[in-house]
Nucleic acid binder design. Sequence first.
DNA 1: CGGTATCCAAAGTGATACTG
DNA 2: CAGTATCACTTTGGATACCG
Lengths: 94, 94
Amino acid sequence: MGLLGRKYVMEIVCIVGVHGTVRFGEIESHLPGASTSTLSTRLEELVDAGLVERERYAEIPPRVEYELSADGEELATRLEPVVEWVAEREEMST
Amino acid sequence: MGLLGRKYVMEIVCIVGVHGTVRFGEIESHLPGASTSTLSTRLEELVDAGLVERERYAEIPPRVEYELSADGEELATRLEPVVEWVAEREEMST
DNA sequence: CGGTATCCAAAGTGATACTG
DNA sequence: CAGTATCACTTTGGATACCG
């Protein structure tokens, strides 16, 4: 899946995975570099790919929550060691 | 590292990891989608990041071999489950 | 063979406006 | 709040050709 190579995808999967269920704004706050529109697009792609599920609540104010699907969880599990190592390695060089 | 999110990076790491030492052309043949220039750029970035090492031989015809550094090996190990799972999942849907 | 140089298309960004 | 839409702009990536 070329989707994995797209910007922010791994990060999003991890963020959602860690939180369990997350709202749009929260994901956004963890990705300062990503624009609203890009994040929106990525999330849609992830939902289409069956890795993330979106739950929309008809409330005021509106609330939308994202969480990983079973496949998403599986991916997150496998992704964890990678992201962890990368994070550690980044600290070293700073 | 945002580098991981760049196109082909994970694939390249895996390809180099599997082969041990690889020549430019061989990597290219495993990535039909990537253009020469992109591959060249990616390899340079990977070398700069200390994940891949380049060995240039002053022969005719010229030969250049790439192989993973210790860090690259570590990354490849952690990346393996991810790539494996993604590959299986792709097969399912085809 | 293994690239770099060049030029062009596509993806992503930022800001802002608008909707349910 | 959680987006979608738009537009101008920057960054990436692709195609091709040429060089050592």
